[in-house]
Structure formats: C-alpha cells, structure tokens
C-alpha cells in the first residue's frame, strides 16, 4: 500500500513551536479541496493545562484522501509543507 506522507515544519508554522499562528494564515486549509488538514489546539504545551486555546497548529489528518495536487505546498507562505510518498 503506497501511503502519502505530509510533513509540516512546526518551527515555521505553529505558535507553540516557534512558528506563526496558523489561525492568522490557514491558506493550506483553504487550498485543499479534499480537506486533508485540521487546525487544532497544540497538545500538552503546558503540563498543567493540555488544552491552551492560545496555541494552535495544523495536522494533516486525512492522508489517504490527498490527491497530490500540490496546492497546499504552493499556498503556504512559510514553505512549511512537504508532500511525498
């Protein structure tokens, strides 16, 4: 089974890890017709509070539905996304 891999460089996107706040951008969400990405609160950034609504990141969730169109890669102003097999 060939599986799609999508990697996000969280040092470029994700405001808990030194990147931008994806809520200010979200271009990948809008570019992707099959809606592969999910924007969500970053996990366990603080030990006492696993859900801090201040920190957000993008996760490619529905990998099997990616059509390799490359639109997200082109749309990302941070050049944070790579799509491969």
């Amino acid at each position: 089974m060939v599986k799609t891999k999508i990697v996000i460089d969280y040092s470029k996107c994700g405001n808990a890890t030194g990147g931008i706040d994806p809520r200010q951008c979200s271009k990948c969400l809008q570019a992707c017709d099959p809606a592969v990405f999910v924007r969500h609160m970053a996990f366990n950034v603080k030990e006492d509070n696993p859900y801090d609504p201040q920190y957000w990141q993008i996760t490619p969730v529905w990998l099997s539905l990616c059509t390799h169109c490359g639109k997200c890669v082109k749309a990302c102003p941070q050049k944070a996304i790579t799509v491969s097999f």
């Binding site: 089974m1 599986k3 999910v38 924007r39 969500h40 609160m41 996990f43 696993p50 859900y51 996760t59 490619p60 969730v61 529905w62 990998l63 099997s64 539905l65």
Partner: peptide
C-alpha cells in the same frame, strides 16, 4: 467541547484518526 478540535488528533486506545483510511485498509 473545551478541546473539540483535538478529537481527530488524540490517540484513543492507541490509535488516532491520522491516516485513518490506511489504517482501515
């Protein structure tokens, strides 16, 4: 609801929804 968006990302019984299509196959 406090953490609604994490429902797909969290591991539940050791699996998350990430790549669910491959896992189901």
């Amino acid at each position: 609801w406090k953490n609604f968006e994490q429902v797909y990302i969290r591991k539940i019984m050791g699996i998350s929804s990430i790549g669910l299509g491959y896992k189901l196959r």
